[in-house]
Each structure stands twice: as C-alpha cells, then as structure tokens.
Design a protein around this nucleic acid. Structure first.
Length: 761
DNA sequence: TTAGGATTTG
C-alpha cells in the first residue's frame, strides 16, 4: 500500500482512517501487547537517507515523536521501513510532518542505549500489510496585504505577470511571478530551482497559484517572495467554470474541498476585478510592430550562429503578410523533411536570441510551445519590392519574453491540435488563400489587376437546372411572371456598397425583415436587467449549478452564472451551456469565448426568464441569435432541462429556440444587383443565407477575414473603375415573381441556386 | 548564487 494522504477533520472527501484502528500511546508500545488493530501517530523529527540493504531491498529510517510529551527524547521512536514502502515514504516525508503508522511489527531497538529513544522500534513493509498515512497539516494562507518581512508563509494569488522559467546566470532555472489577490495587493516572487518541474507550471496570465512555504523579504521598500526550503506550488486554470485540476510542482500535495472552493472564489473575483486579455493572437492576426504570445507547434529548428537560433513553427493559420525565411544550411535544419515541405506556406521562422538559445536547442520537434512576447518587425531586403515581416524573440526576459513548453493535456493545446488536424494543406497552396496583402497589392496596382484577370476570372456557377438555355434580359423584361431563367450578364453596380449593410435578420414565419441590432442595444438591455438582483432561490437546481458574486466596484453589481449539467455532471467548458444574470456586455462576450453557449437571463419569483425580446436569446461563438418579436411566445427557462437530459446535448440554436418558444431570426444577405447585357438592364435581388458567397451571413459581421473575402468576391464580380466592356461575365439563375397590392402590381427578380466560384476565361 | 517585471534595435 502506498503512503496515503489523510486529512484529520470533518470533511467528506477525506481519506479516512480505517475505523477498526485504535490509537496507541507510546507507553503501550511494549512487547507482549497486541498491536494488530493499533496505530501510532507522531511528528517526523529526523529522517535518514534512503539506503539499500545487503539483499538489495530499500530501507528508510525515520524518527517519530509522540504528541503527548514533546520535550522528552524518550518520547521518540525509530521507525524502520523496508522495500517499496521505504521508497514511497522517502519521497514524501518532510521534517515536521505528522504521520500515522499501522500494521507494524514491534521489536527491541538495538540502538536504544545509544540514541536514548524508545526501547522498541517499529518495522513496516508492504509485505507485512503495514500502512502509513500522512496527515495533511492544516495550512494557513496569508492574504497578500498581511505579509511580513522575514516570514515563511503559504499563500494564494492570481498571476498578473510571469516570466516562464529561464536559465539564470547562476546554477538554477528562474521564474518571476507577480501575484495579486482580493486584497488588491501585488507580490512579485522570484523563484529558483535547478529542476524545471519544481517551478510553477504557469501558462498564462490569469492562472491561479498556491504557494507553500514561500519566504517573504523586503526589497526596495516592497515585499518580495523568494523560494526557500520546502517551497511547493500548485497552479490552476483561472477560468470560471473550468475543471479545478492542479498542476503540481511536487509529487505529493494536499488538495481538498476547501482548496477547491478557494480556487473557485478566486476565479470569480478575478473575472469581475481583473482585466485578463481575450483570446491569444494567431498568425493570421499578426500585424507588424507588435509583441504577442504565440501558441504553436514546433516543426523545425536550426542553429544560425552563436547568439541566435531558428525555430520553424505553425499554428494552422496563414500570416497575412509575406514572412521572411532565415537562410540556414540544409544540414543544420532539424525536422521531418516531408512535413517541413508540406507546411512550407504555413510555417513561420522565429529567430530567438541570446539567453533563449539554450532552451530553444533542447526543444523537441512536434512539441507544443507558447512563445511569449514575440516581436513582429517589418523589414525589406535589398532585392525585394515589398516588405516582409520578421519574427524575433529578442534576448532578455523583459515583459515575460521566453519560451514555454505546453503539455498535451493543456486545453489550448487540445484545441490547437484539433485545428491543425483540420487544416487542408492543399488549400494553403492555391491562390484562394493568397495572403490579403498580396491581393491588396494586386488590387492597388492596375497592371497587376489586369494580369490577374487575364488568367482567371470569378463568376457565378449554376448549381442546378443545367438544361436551361440563356435568356436575354430584354426577353425577360417583356415576359410575365413567375418564371425561371438562366442569364449571362455583367454586374454594372450593386447596393449596398458597404457590404456589412447587406446583412439583415429574417423571420421565415412572418416573412419580416429587420436590421441587426448593434452592440449598444444589447448593452442597454443588459444594464437594465442587472438592476434586478439574482434570486438565490433559483440557484443550484437538479439541472444546473450556480455561482454568484458581487463586484467590488461602487455599483456592487450581483452576477450569477448557472452552469447547465448533463447527467448531474458539469461538462467541459467547450460543451457547456450557461446562463448569466447581471453580466455586462464585456463579461458575456468573454464567456462566449470559453463556453459553448451563453444565454442571458434574469430572475423572476419562480423561474429564470429571457431578457427583452430585442436582446439575443443565445450567444454561440461570435454569433448572436435573435428571436422574432411577433412570432415568439417565450416559455419558462426550465424547458431547457429537456435538452440537458438528452444523451449528447448538442445545444443546436434551432433546438434551443424551439424549447424556449422562440421563432429564430435568420441572418441573410439582401443585395440589389444591376445586371446588364447587350439587350437591356435588370435589377435583381439577392436573398441568401450562405450559398451565394459560400459565407454564412450569420458570421460575417464579426469576422474581418470573411468580410474581406466577400469584398474580394464583389471586386471580382464588379471590379471598381472598370469600363463596361472590361467587366467579367456572370452567369446565374433568376426567377421573376409578382408583388401586388390594391393599387400596384410589380414584377421582381431574385437570384437563386447560384454560387460564386472561380472560373477560367 | 541566480533576480529583484516594465520590450530589441540582431
């Protein structure tokens, strides 16, 4: 049996001492007594190094002192541990810890005369059925505003700043960590250890740490933390609702309900009191002249010179600028040749300098890294017309500059891995994914634009009805509706010119169209609903768990989050639906980054309810889902529990809308195209969810690159500043239909079954 | 011992 951790106290999740065991006093540890169901408890006052006996078995000796008479030397007893148990015990035992031993054999101590300890010793081994329990000490944690010079304390803190471990100029690794806690006091800690694993495994600002036995010293008029004997740390993800799983710097640690509660409270405090930045930058989002943290996979590495080293990395997205390639000897480049070639358009070269070289050299190809504070530098080589972007990890550790290796269990790594597996490599090599800068420069340069069109042209392709022949526009204008046609025409102009204005919300039940509300409307509704405090009686039901806290600012706003459970368990954040009361727009937005679905709600006397019908009833990723005010008849929130009870709740917006009695509005593109051919001109409407542009209308408002893609498509269909003769041909299907009222009759035309695709002239 | 947060200038 390995050494078990035991907490003496009254909490339910503790490993309990078997009930048949009874405490034995030191004075009863005598030959002739029955020790079968007895245990002895004492404090470690001395331990000897682990050794091997003549027969090769491990042997470990500790001295335990009884609790009743702490001063007397005869109050201590030798404990001799053999075999596997000796090894286990040697790893965890620390001077001053309390241990319980049971199932021991008692024998006369041959050294009693010399060491003055108890006349008998206790022998333990796994084979003899012995057990050792380590009694978790009751730790006291000092708030950061109560630290005193020269003390050794235990503390919790939220990481406000950190330098990932780096090789110091001495013998150890060093990591600098600045913490903050609800007392709003900061503490910068300088942590040293020769073993990388013994330093806190901090991956991002906002992580929460628990430090044990950290030395407090005053330095430059401020308190400072520094590692000392027995320093140990645990690190946790700081996201509200994420699983509370400690990343440990030591093999054995205590972590129970009380600690879990502390972490959850700190997360909640941090969520409303600290501004922790949003999602990390991707290569597709980099701009010149900035510093950013990159989560990526290492594809290749090479020595460059004495003070710099090359890392070739990718994150599955394409940098929108031309990137530099650091020239290295082929024989110096480590990494799978085939992979390096396959990913050549997606990898970027990061040059690391000085103190980072040693760590960079030791990195394994394929490992997942977070490179902190990479500098993107704009530069141009003598023989290049356009500038390129360079990635540098400069020397030094300012601003946390450095490299961290992330384990595969890390949530960000899991997400990145899944994304990397989904990347279509063929896609990165064709023109469609030509970086936007390359395209921009093509468009800004007339010669370039024409040359692009001389080899390729964009036009609409027909997805069906291939049997239809082309009809001239004049013929269509002279025909009665309704009919369907295939046409070949040029796009002379279109409305709206500001493409984002083409997005509307459409109700398929009452056929109404409306503008997409802007963020301010939603913010206003959220502020209004925050006036009603969450009703605690509605918290923690059979199908959701609730947390509530009050902001520390003057408003003393109460926020409640209800995490919907599945099978009585909380799900992973990426699968979780949660409901929030009293949150601000920013807080709601932050939650959507981490959790699958967010539903803003407010309390009534007997159930939660949706906010005003003009607010989104659901947020998923970047998308806000709205319901039709006329057609919806909202049902109580508890109707959601029926989806939560499904075997695999998928949290589809349509399904959520249905159970909540909401008729969802759909995002659509509405545009007016003026088409011309040799015979006439025709105004045609585009009403489309996603087929025409191959872009979902729901995503375009929140996605810059999709907006760029749409603009590119329109520039292809209707190149600005071009004469009519030079416009590309567009083929599509249109249908005519009648709109009548008492006074008027009009024929309208609409594009259907048409998708924009690239075609060669 | 090391570093003690507060961007390199390749």
């Amino acid at each position: 049996m390995p050494v078990q951790l035991l907490k003496i106290g009254n909490r339910k999740s503790e490993t309990l001492l078997p009930t048949h065991l009874q405490k034995e006093d030191l004075k009863h540890l005598q030959e002739g007594f029955d020790h079968t169901n007895k245990y002895f408890q004492g404090i470690v006052v001395l331990s000897y190094p682990l050794t091997k006996l003549g027969d090769g078995t491990d042997f470990f000796k500790v001295v335990l002192q009884g609790l009743d008479n702490l001063c007397s030397r005869t109050n201590s007893i030798n404990i001799l541990i053999h075999g596997k148990m000796a090894e286990d015990c040697a790893k965890v035992i620390r001077h001053g810890d309390t241990f319980i031993v049971a199932g021991y054999k008692l024998a006369k101590s041959p050294t009693a005369g010399l060491d003055g300890r108890h006349g008998c010793h206790l022998e333990l081994s796994e084979e003899a059925g012995s057990a050792i329990y380590s009694v978790a000490p009751k730790y006291v944690y000092t708030p950061l505003n109560h630290l005193k010079d020269g003390t050794v304390v235990n503390l919790y803190g939220i990481v406000k700043f950190f330098k990932p471990p780096y090789v110091s100029k001495g013998t150890d690794y060093c990591s600098v960590v600045t913490l903050v806690d609800p007392s709003n006091v900061k503490l910068t800690c300088t942590l040293f250890n020769g073993n990388l694993d013994s330093l806190p495994k901090i991956y991002k600002v906002g992580d929460i740490v628990r430090f044990h036995r950290i030395k407090i010293k005053e330095y430059n008029g401020q308190m400072q933390g520094i590692t000392g004997v027995g320093f140990a740390s645990l690190t946790f993800d700081g996201t509200v609702g994420a699983p509370v799983v400690p990343r440990s710097s030591s093999k054995v640690y205590t972590f129970m309900d009380e600690e879990q509660k502390t972490i959850e409270e700190l997360r909640v405090w941090a969520a409303s009191n600290l501004s922790i930045s949003g999602p990390a930058a991707k290569l597709s989002g980099v701009r010149p002249m900035l510093f950013f943290d990159l989560t990526c996979q290492l594809v290749g590495k090479a020595k460059v010179d004495g003070s710099s080293f090359l890392l070739k990395v990718w994150d599955g997205t394409k940098c929108p600028y031309p990137t530099w390639k650091v020239p290295v000897e082929a024989r110096d480049l480590e990494g799978e040749k085939v992979v390096l070639h396959q990913l050549r358009n997606l990898t970027v070269d990061v040059l690391v300098y000085d103190n980072h070289v040693q760590l960079a050299k030791s990195l394994k190809i394929g490992s997942f890294l977070r490179i902190y504070s990479i500098h993107t530098k704009q530069a141009s080589a003598v023989d290049e017309d356009v500038s390129h972007i360079e990635f540098h990890l400069h020397g030094g550790t300012c601003y946390g500059r450095g490299i961290g290796v992330l384990p595969e269990s890390n949530l960000d790594v899991k997400e990145l891995k899944a994304f990397l597996e989904s990347v279509d490599l063929a896609d990165s090599q064709n023109m469609e994914s030509m970086s936007s800068v390359e395209l921009d420069s093509t468009f800004n340069n007339v010669t370039g634009m024409y040359s692009l069109f001389s080899v390729c042209c964009y036009f609409a392709v027909l997805t069906d009805h291939q049997d239809l022949n082309n009809t001239e526009l004049k013929t269509i204008l002279n025909s009665t509706a309704p009919q369907q046609y295939r046409i070949r025409a040029k796009l002379r102009t279109y409305k709206p010119q500001k493409l984002y204005q083409s997005i509307k919300l459409y109700c398929s039940k009452c056929n109404s169209l409306q503008e997409v509300p802007d963020g301010d409307d939603f913010d206003f509704i959220l502020q209004g609903s925050a006036v009603t405090a969450p009703n605690p009686e509605l918290h923690n039901t059979s199908w959701y768990d609730s947390v509530m806290w009050t902001t520390q600012d003057q408003k003393q706003r109460k926020i409640a989050i209800h995490f919907v459970k599945h099978d009585e368990m909380l799900q992973q954040p990426e699968d979780t639906l949660l409901m929030i009361e009293g949150g601000t727009l920013k807080e709601v937005w932050k939650l959507t980054k981490r959790f699958k679905c967010v539903i803003p709600v407010r309390s009534t006397e007997d159930d939660l309810e949706l906010l005003d019908p003009s607010a989104p009833f659901l947020l998923q990723g970047n998308i806000k889902y709205y319901g039709c005010k006329q057609c919806s008849t909202p049902k109580p929130i508890k109707s959601l529990s029926s989806i939560a009870a499904e075997q695999r709740p998928s949290w589809e917006p349509t399904e959520i809308a249905q159970v909540l009695g909401i008729v969802p509005l759909q995002y659509v593109f509405i545009m007016k195209f003026t088409l011309v051919d040799a015979t006439g001109a025709l105004n045609v409407y585009l009403f489309d969810y996603e087929n025409f542009f191959q872009i979902p209308a729901s995503e375009i408002l929140t996605n810059n690159s999709l907006q760029q893609k749409m603009q590119m498509t329109m520039n292809m269909l209707c190149p600005p500043g071009r004469k009519l003769d030079d416009l590309p041909w567009l083929e599509c299907f249109i249908k005519s239909y009648n709109v009548r009222d008492a006074m008027t009759h009009q024929v309208y035309y609409q594009i259907f079954d048409t998708t924009v695709a690239e075609g060669v002239v």
